[in-house]
Each structure stands twice: as structure tokens, then as C-alpha cells.
């Protein structure tokens, strides 16, 4: 098979694509193929990696035009014609390079983030959005001596969102992030919601209001690409939907309160 790889470094007018022949083996991942290119053909090929086991969130990239973890994506599955999830308003028009899906796998950097070199993108805006939601527990008082009691149900609900590994796949898949860089994005909103529903959280109501604006809960258009590409099955769209319902209910109550007898 052939690996077609996006190449860019500062100083280049436009990116180019390099194609490498890879002897695909059963179980070989896209990350494995990239390491092989580095070792055999071109040691300047650059991409991020760490755990190689789909737990650290480092190696998200655009593979056959779907944002996914390179370490978790098998070459065989791609060549067998498995296209991955169908995404709304995808593929993006800014990636016009053709490829032959029967013989090639095309690997490109995550969209919606500036490219530093090859497959490495600048994650600054992604983590700025993360920090913007003040992602830290503000604990209720009085604080118990031991642990807070939490029902298994409350934990189950929280554990829908806590598996997020902040890989950025959802951010890259979201059409709203593509047209509005000020949008907080699915990962940050899912994180914010996780604190909203934490029974230990003191400022749960503030959490809801924190993104009650056009760049927050209300920017989402429910394409649900975020949920479809998430390697950890986190549903940011669900969190956003809940938040909007709660806000609508609050506003309705306020209005009826004001106009009531």
C-alpha cells in the first residue's frame, strides 16, 4: 500500500504531498506506518506521538479525511474500504488533494488549527478554549473529612464526559469551529458540562451561565460530528442539548415569574 502524507514546513508557499510505499502487515496502524517512513525513508517527517494505545490523545490527525487517532487506526481496515463515520459538511473544501482509497491512505494535519510542521498542529486555541471554561472543581462547603458521597448513577453520568482525552478530533470535525474560531467547541463545552453536573460542585449554576452566549452553548448546530469522531465515545452534543434545555427552562421560569400575578 501507499501512504500519502501532507508535508509542510515554515517557508513553503503551499504544502506538498509525499507518497511512501509501505509493506502493510496485519495489525499495522497508521502511526506504525508513519514510524516506518521516519526510519526507512525520511527522518524529517514530523508527527506527535506518546502512548500508542489510544489513551493519551496525542496523535489525532486527519486520516482519509476523518479526524482520528493514528495509533488506533488500522491500515487494513482503511484499505478494505471502511470509510469511518460519515461527517456533516465534510470533507472540507480546503483539502482538495485526490487519493486512491483502494491503494492509498492519506494523512493530513487536523483542520481548524495552524500547521507547525507536517502533521503537527498548534493546539493553542484548543487549550485556550479549555482554560476559558475554568475547568476545575469549585468544591462545596463544608468539606467532609473523607470522601463526598456520590451515587453510582451520578458517577455514571459524569463518566460519559470524563473519558475525554483532549485529542482535538471533535474540534477538527466541527463545522462550527471551522467557520467561527471564537466558538468554544465541543471538548471545552463537554468539560464545562462535566462540572455543571458534578454533585460536589459549588457553582453549578454559574457553570451553565458561563457559556450562555453566542460563542458557547448557542453556537452548536448539532452536526454531531464531535460524537461520531470521538475515540472515547464522549457525546458533547448531548451535554450542549441538556444545557440549552436547562437555560430555556430557567428563562421561561424567569419570564413567567416577571409577568405572573
Amino acid at each position: 500500500m501507499k501512504l500519502k502524507v501532507f508535508r509542510f514546513r515554515p517557508g513553503m508557499d503551499r504544502p506538498r504531498y509525499d507518497t511512501f510505499a509501505i509493506a502493510s502487515r496485519h495489525g499495522m496502524t497508521v502511526l506504525g506506518a508513519l514510524f516506518e517512513v521516519q526510519a526507512l525513508y525520511d527522518d524529517s517527517l514530523s508527527f506527535r506521538y506518546s502512548c500508542r494505545g489510544a489513551v493519551c490523545g496525542t496523535c489525532a490527525m486527519l486520516i482519509n479525511r476523518v479526524p482520528r487517532l493514528a495509533c488506533r487506526t488500522q491500515l487494513e481496515a482503511l484499505l478494505a474500504g471502511n470509510p469511518g463515520p460519515a461527517l456533516s459538511q465534510y470533507p472540507l473544501p480546503e483539502y482538495p488533494e485526490p487519493w486512491d482509497p483502494e491503494e492509498e491512505v492519506i494523512v493530513e494535519p487536523l483542520p481548524h488549527l495552524p500547521v507547525i510542521k507536517d502533521l503537527i498542529v498548534d493546539m493553542t486555541t484548543f487549550f485556550d478554549d479549555y482554560r476559558a471554561v475554568l475547568p476545575v472543581l469549585k468544591e462545596k462547603e463544608p468539606v467532609p473529612e473523607k470522601e463526598w458521597r456520590m451515587t453510582p448513577e451520578a458517577v455514571r453520568e459524569l463518566e460519559l464526559y470524563t473519558p475525554c482525552i483532549l485529542c482535538g478530533a471533535c474540534y477538527a470535525a466541527c463545522p462550527v469551529n471551522g467557520k467561527n474560531p471564537r466558538y468554544l467547541g465541543p471538548a471545552a463545552l463537554a468539560k464545562l458540562w462535566r462540572f455543571r453536573i458534578d454533585p460536589r460542585e459549588r457553582d453549578a449554576a454559574d457553570r451553565l451561565r458561563a457559556a450562555d452566549n453566542p460563542e458557547g452553548w448557542w453556537a452548536c448546530e448539532f452536526h454531531t460530528n464531535c460524537r461520531r469522531v470521538c475515540p472515547k465515545s464522549v457525546p458533547p452534543d448531548k451535554a450542549i442539548g441538556h444545557a440549552r434545555q436547562e437555560l430555556n427552562r430557567m428563562k421561561k421560569n424567569q419570564e413567567s415569574g416577571e409577568t405572573g400575578p
Binding site: V136, L137, E139, V143, K146, E147, W148, R149, M150, T151, P152, V155, L158, E159, T162, F195, D198, R200
Partner: peptide, 15 residues
């Protein structure tokens, strides 16, 4: 736990 780590729980709510 007080910093925010979500631990799995027993039925009675303890870790």
C-alpha cells in the same frame, strides 16, 4: 477526591 477526581462508587456512595 476533593480536587475533583471521579472515583467509581459503592452503592452507599463511598469510593
Amino acid at each position: 477526591e476533593h480536587m475533583g477526581t471521579v472515583w467509581s462508587r459503592l452503592e452507599d456512595g463511598r469510593i
